[in-house]
């Protein structure tokens, strides 16, 4: 099911700054990574989807609704987690999320129940009765996520959810986002400038640069052809390369490494056999997935 569809979406701010140019994508439900450098137009795209700003030209449909005209319906089904700090210091998380639940149109008791549910799902239990001012950055990010979840949206728009978190916090947040996307049945758009981070949890990726679409596709189709094995031997790299080529494999050299595309698990055995036949000492043999980043850079250079 397509949840977000844009047609030649363009946004030009006053003063001639183009934030989005001719963006055409159709995105299926699931966890979607929206990747681009700072200033690539990610936040503008999110704001257009929320109906906060109108596109200069082109169209956008969210759940087949037009955010410009049917703003209320769209916003009722979408939860938004902004990038910046957006929490008051002197109220408890529980009160704050309840209040925002009511702002989303939940009745009072329902708002309170949903608020504690949402906070529980993001991993805040007893802490939720304490004032937000005393929370760590990780807890604050969780509150921000909880407020986006409180009204049970069908789509979450998360703007840099891992901002300011330490590596462990990042992993926890990404795992949570992944869980929301898979177990809760809520589609998630995760904005990030770190591709390596979102590619782990996303079903599909949209990469934009300078407001233009670089590529939009499902992660699986982006990576499947790019499973490679990296082989490193102490010396005799050239002999090994020759032997492998002779065995019918395409070998690329990358410094001291040999990269061999992996067709099946048998590739491991064939490489090992070649190494033992030549009586070389094997330093390393590991599977590496091409980072999606490399795909984009490759695509870019082709374009240029």
């Amino acid at each position: 099911m397509t949840i977000i569809a844009t047609q030649a979406l363009t946004k030009t701010y006053g003063g001639g700054v183009t934030a989005l140019a001719d963006l055409t994508v159709a995105v299926d439900a699931g966890v979607i990574g929206l990747v681009g450098a700072n200033g690539a137009g990610k936040s503008t795209f999110i704001k257009i989807m929320l109906g906060l700003i109108a596109p200069s030209s082109g169209s956008v449909r969210v759940f087949d609704l037009d955010p410009v005209v049917q703003t209320d319906q769209v916003r009722a089904r979408v939860g938004y987690m902004p990038e910046n700090d957006c929490l008051p210091q002197d109220v408890s998380a529980s009160e704050f999320v309840t209040h925002l639940g009511r702002m989303s149109g939940l009745p009072r008791t329902a708002a309170r129940e949903r608020a504690s549910e949402a906070l529980r799902h993001v991993g805040l239990y007893e802490e939720r009765y304490r004032q937000i001012g005393g929370y760590s950055t990780g807890m604050k990010q969780r509150v921000k996520l909880a407020q986006a979840l409180v009204h049970d949206p069908d789509l979450l728009l998360l703007d840099e959810p891992t901002n300011g978190l330490d590596p462990a916090g990042r992993d926890a947040m990404l795992a949570l986002v992944h869980r929301i996307g898979t177990e809760f049945g809520i589609s998630v758009v995760v904005c990030s400038h770190l591709l390596g981070e979102v590619e782990r949890i996303c079903d599909s990726l949209i990469a934009i640069e300078g407001g233009r679409l670089l590529r939009a596709d499902r992660i699986s189709s982006m990576t499947e052809a790019f499973e490679v094995l990296a082989v490193e031997v102490s010396d005799g790299t050239d002999e090994l390369a020759a032997a492998l080529t002779q065995a019918g494999m395409t070998v690329t050299r990358d410094g001291r490494l040999l990269l061999v595309p992996m067709d099946s698990d048998a590739t491991y055995d064939r490489i090992l056999r070649a190494v033992t036949d030549l009586d070389l000492s094997l330093h390393r043999l590991d599977q590496r997935r091409h980072r999606v980043a490399e795909l984009f850079t490759a695509k870019e250079t082709v374009d240029v």
């Binding site: 938004y80 902004p82 957006c86 008051p88 925002l100 989303s104």
Partner: peptide, 17 residues
């Protein structure tokens, strides 16, 4: 001022309000 200071406004205006 409190809402401006804490940056809460985007949370309000991403809702039907």
């Amino acid at each position: 001022s409190r809402d401006i200071r804490s940056g809460t406004l985007p949370l309000y205006f991403s809702r039907p309000l």
